[in-house]
Design a protein around this nucleic acid. Sequence first.
DNA 1: TATGAATGAGCTTTCATTCAT
DNA 2: AATGAATGAAAGCTCATTCAT
Lengths: 203, 203, 203, 203
Amino acid sequence: MEGQPEKTTNARERSQQATRARILTEAARLFAESGSKSTTTKVIAEAAGVAVGTIYLHFKDKDGLLKEVLKTALTRLKQELGKQPTGSLSGPDLVRTKMEALADFTHRFPHLAAVLFDPANLGTPAGREAHAFLLKSQENGLMAGISAGYYRGDIHSGLVARAMVGILVEVLGWWGRNPQAATRSEVIETLVEMRMNGLKPGV
Amino acid sequence: MEGQPEKTTNARERSQQATRARILTEAARLFAESGSKSTTTKVIAEAAGVAVGTIYLHFKDKDGLLKEVLKTALTRLKQELGKQPTGSLSGPDLVRTKMEALADFTHRFPHLAAVLFDPANLGTPAGREAHAFLLKSQENGLMAGISAGYYRGDIHSGLVARAMVGILVEVLGWWGRNPQAATRSEVIETLVEMRMNGLKPGV
Amino acid sequence: MEGQPEKTTNARERSQQATRARILTEAARLFAESGSKSTTTKVIAEAAGVAVGTIYLHFKDKDGLLKEVLKTALTRLKQELGKQPTGSLSGPDLVRTKMEALADFTHRFPHLAAVLFDPANLGTPAGREAHAFLLKSQENGLMAGISAGYYRGDIHSGLVARAMVGILVEVLGWWGRNPQAATRSEVIETLVEMRMNGLKPGV
Amino acid sequence: MEGQPEKTTNARERSQQATRARILTEAARLFAESGSKSTTTKVIAEAAGVAVGTIYLHFKDKDGLLKEVLKTALTRLKQELGKQPTGSLSGPDLVRTKMEALADFTHRFPHLAAVLFDPANLGTPAGREAHAFLLKSQENGLMAGISAGYYRGDIHSGLVARAMVGILVEVLGWWGRNPQAATRSEVIETLVEMRMNGLKPGV
DNA sequence: TATGAATGAGCTTTCATTCAT
DNA sequence: AATGAATGAAAGCTCATTCAT
């Protein structure tokens, strides 16, 4: 008897959360496929099986929805990066571990990766935060590596961080949209080698 | 008397070409500053000192205008790349020469570079062609380098080419928008080192 | 044991009435503050501490709610007008008494007065009824006054009644929204003088 | 030869002005009939025989259109008030002259009068300017009249001005919507008498 | 009786494109 | 060739109303 109203509330909350999640998922998929600018709220609503108005019940506006998709993507990415204990790893292994995490995130959430790494989104106010995180994260890694002597000290860390973000955006965004076009290990190998050794022939 | 109509025609043709060039230049500047999507035809027309309709006399539509800006950018880029005779250069020197050309193109035509390397444009049908060129060009360079033994043979050339394009888009596009944020040699050094040696400490 | 269901019913009825009253009061306040058109049902529901749907259990629709607010206002106004025995009063005293009642109604129920005298509401179907009452009431007063010889017979009573309603709407509506901007006696004096003597200097 | 381009420009300008005028006229008519809030841009466009977008070519937005209608109305009203030389008139004659001008304005531009005196519009930001003008104009007239000894000095001029505006809004707005319901002289007589003498029987 | 998530018609506004001049 | 007023499809967003719980 006491449980009933609570049960009803819970059921409603669950259904509400399900609706929100459905909108979020479909928006991510559509944003990944066609870009956020050319995906209309009408199309998102249809894909999620709700009315247009429902989107505005769960998100402030279209930009807020994009923001939330990007936030979810960032959260997932951070989760993936946080899985392995990286404290005791040396430079090269640390890089490999990080690149593996980035690749796995892309593999597990291809739509989120495609949106997060969609250059068009990185250009919008909503995406700048994500961009800044990636940039900062790369820059921090570089600074730490230089201090520890793992990286060369004569690099322009801002530029290199930007270059690394460029690689991630291009390679992982593309892989997110075409998961079958390359294997996980090919992607990881490319990212690691580009960062560690460049392309000159091994000794 | 006979010369007059011809002269008039020539004058007309010249003025016509001048109008076309003015639209192209202003469009490039505005696309670089605000992105092609948020630059309206009205604003372009005002900047070029013509009526909106005039744009449609010289270009099929707005996308055609963007296409032409990108084509111009590609032409300029190719010109820059073609300046130095590269036949006799060895791998590493070839890379440096190419990167210098890319940097110089960006330095001389910052607006064109900003548009060419604007990720949002690379995503549109108009930009895909430019993207494909960059990708192909990188891939060709890689294949040639591998054949000649300058590059390691165990790389996935498609992936690496994509990674290099990512670097170019991110670094040069950014430098085009912020020319004062880095020097020419810093940019070139970063591009060359990322490609040739990665970041690991030198021996 | 037998009393319990009845008691429950009564309690329910009472609470039901209380809910209805709360919605009515809050709607009146909000309509007075922001106008009925720009007050949303959501805001009314929040102010009344109920769900949006509850409003529709007590009122047919939003217009029905406005109608009910206006009806309440009219009822209160009539109550105020009916307080003093007016039977024995002569013309000028009757006018003063009526104007006092109008001023006191506004003073006691400023929100209801602001809504009743809100021109925007007088324009809606819901408000036309209230408008008609005011008009009729003024017209009746005029006709009676003319018959009794208190007023000049050469006036167009329809027009004058309309003019009087205009004064009430403008002056009392404004005073309802800004109770501190004038004193009760200033308001009453203005209403009485406008009606009785106009503005020409006294002899 | 020289005249031709100018002629073309003039023709275009004339047609543009005609379009603008048509939108303005139809908007005034529709605002008068149904209120500005419930008149949609679609309906205005249809009535004016143009596309919706054309409205936004001539006016910033819907509110800007309403503002322009009100501005036009105010201009016409001032024109009418400025027709008679009022300098040499004594108080009562001055009042009559002014009331005649107000009535004539309403008679000549019933739609503009209906919009200008539409209480709902006086409530919007766009209409507040018009409201303020009317209020100020009445107040100035009263102050001048009191100084000159034509009006009683013991009135609360702010309140009385408000009352007069109420009369104008109610009587002229109604007459604008129902021109056949009263004659010009009945309206003028009512306005003058309400202001000068009130309703008490003549001596 | 009460809830509030969901609805969807309808609104205002934008802007690439056209075409009579 | 050049003009720019006019177009109208299509977008984002609001909010009175409904109905399953």
